[in-house]
Design a protein around this nucleic acid. Structure first.
Lengths: 239, 239
DNA sequence: CAACCCAACTTCCTATAGGATTTAAGGGCT
DNA sequence: AGCCCTTAAATCCTATAGGAAGTTGGGTTG
């Protein structure tokens, strides 16, 4: 007979239709940051580009509306969401602060499961941070390198929130993740930014390794505030 | 010429297509709680019942997926989400606790704008709570009365989160709102529940009136924990 | 010259049709 | 009887067509 085999249940293998693949493809386009904010996203045009009919594209757009990356106006179509204004930025950081601090608090007791993945993500973050720093020093800017750096950064935070063991916290964090991503693209300005971020990550990691909840929370708070500070600094530099 | 008239900008009058109305209609059906969890939601059947084509229904379902009220399995269709298990319930309360406590903290400084609406919501909550208590004493249970009571309760919390002045907090709170609503339907068991809830609301209101942030936060925390306690108590009573 | 109006085009939105997949039922085999 | 396979119905999913609303441009009028 079929003994208790480590067979992953079918319900866990999530099945995907065409609509989901179209969603992923459009999401890529948006996160690459090549399309400028405010520009129109024509259903028919996207359908032709992706070589599918408008119907699944339309459904993917409904799904994308949720992420905040696109805005919809009935009978007028979709647009790439405009860039975040100062007050939206501030509110976004406040929300992230709340979620990540609480997640850190809840995650420290589960450090056993968390630490391996967190160390791996931290190491990747370090490697790509150096790459980015090198490129900045050389005056280049490879899109793929920055993409990988962002992914490593996101993985670090994602691991912590996931280990908090609260699916709603995780869902909220992922929701903000897309908006945060668009923010990140504007944050790398000085070469010191990535290094500072890595140092702050290290502080969080070490506190978790020691099992020091209070220190971990403080370190996370300091990190988020650090990102906020660098963000507004770069913003004003740009102006 | 058109002087600076108090004309509400067109962008604020949200335009609505058929898809949005279908969404509202299906949402009503789900929040009424008449459809049993786990049952299938056929696209075609819904389309016939609402007398529209399957296309807008399909898009409304994509939108509903986000609320957590329905679950989707590709090529198999949609189902009414199963009832929340114990751990999901616990996580939901933790998430609500985080959001509402933080919102209370942020809302107290804006008490001027908040208090009028909060007092009104509180009064409504009181009125409907008495109605519910009367019906429970008489052994009846009018669906519309409990609906109104839930709406008043939601309005109270919504007012506070809205006054926090953070759109992301508000969005997250509304997201949890749908799930919370399904939870509420199981919470009214003893007649004392609604009275206890009202007393706890009063404590929150009074603390905000005094401008006492710490007390307001504590009162809100006590309220959420109170709901949690009553929820699990009624749950075990039922078993 | 500016403002308005009208017409043609573009785009979105809903409805319908057909292909693909799942589900349920019935007959045959072990 | 129990299990499996096959067949039919129902359902979901994608594609296409046509109607409705919005957008753009040119022409006209004050």
């Amino acid at each position: 007979m079929t003994a208790p085999m480590p067979l992953r249940s079918v319900s866990e293998l999530e099945r995907r239709g065409l609509r989901d693949r179209v969603y992923d493809r459009i999401l890529e386009l948006l996160l690459e940051g090549q399309v400028e904010p405010g520009s129109r996203l024509s259903i028919d045009t996207l359908a032709k580009q992706l070589d599918v009919s408008p119907t699944p594209v339309r459904e993917a757009m409904v799904q994308l509306e949720r992420t905040g990356l696109v805005t919809r106006e009935a009978l007028k179509g979709y647009r790439v969401a405009p860039p975040l204004g100062p007050e939206e930025l501030s509110e976004l950081f406040d929300a992230r602060l709340m979620i990540e601090v609480e997640s850190t608090r809840l995650a420290v007791p589960h450090a056993d499961a968390l630490l391996p993945r967190l160390r791996e993500a931290h190491q990747l973050h370090h490697a790509w941070a150096e790459q980015v720093a090198q490129e900045l020093a050389a005056g280049e800017s490879d899109v793929r390198v920055t993409q990988e750096y962002f992914a490593a950064d996101a993985a670090f935070h994602h691991a912590i929130v996931e280990s908090a063991g609260n699916r709603y916290l995780l869902a909220m964090h992922d929701d903000l993740g897309a908006l945060t991503h668009r923010l990140r693209q504007a944050v790398i300005r000085g070469a010191t930014d990535v290094e500072e971020a890595h140092v702050e990550h290290s502080a969080v990691l070490e506190a978790i390794e020691r099992g020091d909840t209070a220190a971990a929370v403080d370190a996370m708070r300091a990190h988020i505030e650090g990102v906020r500070t660098r963000s507004v600094r770069d913003e004003t530099d740009q102006a």
